[in-house]
């Protein structure tokens, strides 16, 4: 394979995953928390595709496509919840969203 080894790709995936984890832990706005979750899922996807290349087997790419579909579903439900919060005049701050009574 031309270019760097698969191990370097996996290292980049680990960096990406921990960046997303930092965002989830640090940010208060649920929108940014969702965006950070996307970064974490993409780090996992990069590791899956890199290891699929390592084994020469497309099963990892199939799993990555499934993860993308599940991420799209998660975004739909998460954004629906955020819009419902905003419509209910709730403050968009994960530290203050302690009651989900609607």
């Amino acid at each position: 394979m031309r270019g760097p080894d698969v191990g370097w790709y996996v290292a980049v995936a680990a960096f990406l995953f921990s960046t997303g984890a930092l965002g989830v832990l640090l940010r208060r706005s649920p929108l940014i928390v969702l965006l950070s979750l996307e970064i974490m899922l993409n780090g996992a996807n990069l590791a899956l595709i890199a290891l699929a290349r390592h084994h020469g087997d497309v099963d990892g790419q199939i799993f990555a496509l499934t993860v993308m579909a599940v991420a799209a579903a998660e975004v739909v439900v998460g954004l629906g919840l955020i819009v419902a919060f905003a419509r209910g005049r709730l403050e968009l701050d994960v530290d203050k969203l302690r009651f989900l009574r609607g």
Binding site: G3, Y9, N45, L46, I49, A50, A52, R53, L65
Partner: peptide
């Protein structure tokens, strides 16, 4: 990330 996927022979992904 799509560029990295292309480098890993994952064109469709």
């Amino acid at each position: 990330l799509a560029v990295l996927y292309l480098l890993l022979n994952a064109e469709f992904v």
